[in-house]
Structures are given as structure tokens and as C-alpha cells.
Write a protein that binds this DNA or RNA. Structure first.
Length: 482
RNA sequence: GGCGCUAUCGUCUAGGGGUUAGGACGUCAGAUUCUCAAUCUGAAAACCCGGGUUCGAUUCCCGGUAGCGCUACCA
């Protein structure tokens, strides 16, 4: 396997979105599989829309995902001379020509053409005589450089995912290579770079499928060998439209902020368009890299399902060793503005995290549903109150319960359970009623771990305190509700 | 509009000329009982339509339809 070289080439005009992340991932998997080289290239030739801070953000996201690269990042903005030189060569060899049509003229022709739809560049400047070209050039008339597309024949290639693709050359217009300000367009820079960087496999989104014939024409005009192309189906929103802001979170960073683990994100993304031969759903990136195959990539677009991502995340979350999870939870609490003082020691903190771990879907859940385990500043969930705090005997019962628990010494969850069940029996209440009400008192939530496990991590003093606080709250709201 | 590509449960997909069309998420129902967003069990749920080829098409071919992409001095 001689020198396989692939690249991931994002454009810093936005954050790294899930589609781009999957493209990066597939390049990464492909490179790892065959021991190739992955190159990172920043396609920032659109000076107006490219932002340096977005480059930084993209790099951060890649790093978070654990997708490392071997060469780069290279910036296209550093290579402008190279593109201009190639454009000059292509003019030299007759594969390109200067075009003096102004954007306004082109726009006018476009809208004139019935409905403005089927227009393609009419070749006005293609027909210019040598003399006329020279004259305008030396007059300094602004111009672009266009590629001279053959008038007949067809351009075809064998895509690793989509199979054979062919297009009649007459369907392709004389596209722009160099803008009037000297900036290259995508078609020029991408080909120049892929040639110079000796890219052997171009793995990118299917939105480039239709562009590929144009680029092949440039490769040939430049006298370069063609790479292998592999286009990836697109990732769509729930409405089957291309993923965009209105679908909510689409950037990798947004999912990181929502408490998704990078491993889960990677696993989920990998399965959007590819299934390992064995069909397993949960697999490490190493396992993926061992089995990854471009030819097995699906041809149809995939809808991004946040629900399945959340499920996948819960799988990874519960499989995480506690010593790796604890720091993540700590960071989450911090970013949620919770100064965790309740688990007094690292060991207790881990114990609390471990208790919560099996039922959490994202890191965020620790600071939301799990909030009461880390701070006294928590609210009682409205639904939970309605469901479990409606019995009139509760204030009295909780008051008594608090007293009994206070009297347990030494405190153990078993003793607490004995005490609670004893109280229930004496007063002729169902233990469930008391348990559920107490859970709300201790955590503010209807949904939480087993009650005596909760008491165990909270400890006696805090349990008693919260029971008393609940009695107070219950008294106030009881009056209000009556 | 033109050109290109695609089409299996709601979603991600496996499969393939004869199958009970498999799995996963989600949904629903039961179980458990101290809550469920945990766990277990079960259920409903798909081959876009029309032709052709064939003994037999969901699978192969053609057409239609739909969706997506490209159609910029964006990438």
C-alpha cells in the first residue's frame, strides 16, 4: 500500500458541523485502516466569509473528537501565488482564458434567459481574438480567468461510493478559476493543492459530486494524475432538508456543550452511512478503523437523529470508569455554575457520581436532574410536587421522619429504611407514599435513584435538614393550594 | 428548468431472484416496585409507483414519482 494520502479540508466560514465531522472521521478511519497520511487543509480563499477564529474553533472540535492529523494545517491563503501560477500555466497552454464580462453583465444575461434558470456562461470572451485580449489586458480591464471546457465528449470517473459518474462536457460551463481580485476559486485551489500535496484519495461530501468533472478537467489540463474520488452521502435534518441552524444544534461544539461524549459522537457519526460487517452498534474507533471500507458506505442521505445520539451517549456514559467520569462531571458542574460542596471528599464525590451514572444520558443531566446531589440550591420540580406531595398527612409524617432519622446513630441506609418503614406501618400509610414524598424532599425530583441510596450519599444531617425544609415548603404551599 | 445522484419500518441500517425481510433508536404494552429518564419481556411498524425480464421480483432492467445535490467572481 504505497503512500496513501488523504485530506480533510474544511472552510472556516462556520463551525465544524456534524457533516464535516463525519467527513473528517471517514478520512481518519480510511487513513488509519491503511496506514496512510491525513492532511488538514484550511480552505480560506473566500476572504470575506473566512474567519481566523473559526479556524481555531474547527481545530478545537477536531481535537475534542480525537481526530488527529499527520500534516498541516495548511492554509490556502498562504498559497495564492501557487494558484495564480497554475492559472497562468493553464492560460499558457490554452486551457484557460481571461474573461472581461462584468458581474453585472452576467447577471443581466442570466435574468434575461427565460426565467433566469438554464443559463450558462455564453463564452463571449472565449471568442476574443488574441489582439483584443492583449489590448484589454494592457488597459488593465478587470477580468477573471475561466477554464476552457471542451465542447464535446464526456468526463467520467469511478467514484468509490457512487460508482461510475459521467457528464457531457457540453453541460459544463466555462467556470471561473481566478477571480478578478486574483483570489482563486475552489475549483482551482482544491485541484492545485490536491496535486501538490499528492493526495491519492479525495473523500468528501456528495455535494461535490457534480463538481468533480470540472475538477477532473483541471487535473488533465494540468497534466496531473487523478486521485480516487469517494463522495459521502449528506446528513440531513429531521425534515430531510440539509442540516442548518434552524434544526437546532448542528455544530460539534454545541453537542459538546450539551454533555455529549466525543466517543459517543464519533460512534454515532460513523454509523450514519456505514455499518461494520458484523453489524455491531457500539464500537471503538480502533475497531472501526480495522473494518472501515469506503465501498461499504451508503449512497443515500441520512437524517440526523439526536435521540439515538443521546442513547449512544448513555451507553458510553455508563461504561466510563468512574475515575474518568468524575473529572468530566466536575467540569460540567463548574460550567453550570455549581460549586460542588456536598460530596465532601473526592471519594464521596465519586460515590455520588457512580450512583447517578446509570441513569444519566448526558453530562448535562448531572447538573440538571442531579443538581441536588451537589448543591443546596435546588428547586422542587412542579410535576414531582403535584405527583408525590399531595397527601395531607405528609407534613406531619415528614416531620416525624426527620426526627427519627436524626436519632439514628450511627447512621446507615439500612437503619433509615427500617425507621421509615416502621413509621409507615405505625401510621397506617403505604411505604411508597412516604418514600416518594421523601425523594422529592431530598432531590426536588420525582425521578432519582433509590431513596436509601440517596440518603447514603447525602448523609444524615443533610437528609434531616432537607426533610425539615420540605415540611416548611409543604406547609406554605398547602395553604396556597387549599 | 437543465444535469447528476438516491430510494427497505417514523429514523439509522442489514439483506438479497424464492427469507417469518434481520438489528438498533424511538413508540406502545406488560413485568419489577420506592420514582423512572433505570432494568427485563413483548408488540406494532418498511421493501415509492408502473411496466419489463423470469417459473418467481423487494432484489435485475426501463419509465414515472419524490427527495437531495450542482447549476456563483461560495466551498
Amino acid at each position: 500500500m504505497a503512500d496513501i494520502r488523504v485530506r480533510f479540508a474544511p472552510s472556516p466560514t462556520g463551525y465544524l458541523h456534524v457533516g464535516g465531522a463525519r467527513t473528517a472521521l471517514y478520512n481518519w478511519l480510511f487513513a488509519r485502516r491503511i496506514n496512510g497520511v491525513l492532511i488538514l487543509r484550511i480552505e480560506d480563499t473566500d476572504a470575506d466569509r473566512s474567519k481566523p477564529e473559526l479556524t481555531k474553533a474547527i481545530l478545537d472540535s477536531l481535537e475534542w473528537l480525537g481526530l488527529n492529523w499527520d500534516e498541516g494545517p495548511f492554509h490556502q491563503s498562504d498559497r495564492l501565488d501557487r494558484y495564480r501560477a497554475l492559472a497562468a500555466d493553464l492560460q499558457q497552454t490554452g486551457h484557460a482564458y481571461p474573461c472581461f464580462c462584468t458581474p453585472e453583465e452576467l447577471q443581466a444575461k442570466r435574468s434575461l434567459a427565460a426565467g433566469g434558470r438554464p443559463w450558462k456562461y455564453d463564452g463571449t470572451c472565449r471568442k476574443l481574438s488574441e489582439l483584443e485580449q492583449q489590448t484589454r489586458l494592457s488597459d488593465g480591464v478587470p477580468h477573471v480567468v475561466r477554464f476552457r471546457v471542451p465542447e464535446s465528449g464526456e468526463t467520467a470517473f469511478d467514484d468509490q461510493v457512487f460508482g461510475r459518474i459521467k457528464v457531457e462536457n457540453q453541460e459544463i460551463e466555462d467556470f471561473v478559476l481566478l477571480r478578478s481580485d486574483g483570489q482563486p476559486t475552489y475549483h482551482l485551489s482544491v485541484v492545485a493543492d490536491d496535486i501538490d500535496m499528492r493526495i491519492t484519495h479525495v473523500v468528501r461530501g456528495a455535494d461535490h459530486l457534480s463538481n468533480t468533472p470540472k475538477q477532473i478537467l483541471v487535473y488533465r489540463a494540468a497534466g496531473a494524475n487523478l486521485p480516487v474520488f469517494a463522495h459521502l452521502p449528506l446528513i440531513l435534518g429531521p425534515d430531510k432538508q440539509r442540516l442548518s441552524k434552524r434544526h437546532g444544534a448542528t455544530s460539534v461544539g454545541a453537542y459538546r456543550d450539551q454533555g455529549i461524549l466525543p466517543e459517543a459522537m464519533i460512534n454515532f457519526l460513523a454509523l450514519l452511512g456505514w455499518t461494520p460487517p458484523g453489524g455491531e452498534e457500539i464500537l471503538s474507533r480502533e475497531a472501526m478503523a480495522q473494518q472501515f471500507d469506503l465501498a461499504a458506505v451508503s449512497k443515500s442521505n441520512a437524517v440526523f437523529d439526536p435521540e439515538k445520539l443521546a442513547w449512544m451517549n448513555s451507553q458510553y456514559l455508563r461504561a466510563l470508569p468512574i475515575d474518568r467520569l468524575a473529572p468530566l462531571v466536575e467540569a460540567e458542574l463548574q460550567s453550570a455554575g455549581i460549586r460542588s460542596t456536598i460530596p465532601a471528599s473526592p471519594a464521596e464525590f465519586e460515590q455520588t457520581v457512580a450512583l447517578l451514572q446509570p441513569r444519566m444520558r448526558t453530562l448535562k443531566d448531572f447538573s440538571q436532574g442531579g443538581r441536588a446531589f451537589f448543591t443546596e440550591e435546588f428547586d422542587y420540580d412542579q410535576e414531582a410536587r403535584k405527583k408525590f406531595w399531595k397527601d395531607a398527612s405528609l407534613p406531619g409524617l415528614l416531620h416525624t421522619l426527620a426526627e427519627r432519622i436524626e436519632g439514628i446513630d450511627p447512621f446507615t441506609p439500612e437503619k433509615a429504611e427500617e425507621g421509615l418503614r416502621g413509621l409507615a406501618e405505625e401510621t397506617g400509610t403505604k411505604a411508597g407514599l412516604l418514600i416518594n414524598a421523601t425523594r422529592v424532599a431530598l432531590t426536588g425530583q420525582a425521578v432519582a435513584p433509590g431513596l436509601f441510596d440517596i440518603m447514603n450519599v447525602l448523609g444524615r444531617a443533610r437528609t434531616v435538614e432537607r426533610l425539615r425544609r420540605a415540611v416548611k415548603v409543604l406547609g406554605e404551599s398547602g395553604a396556597a393550594n387549599a
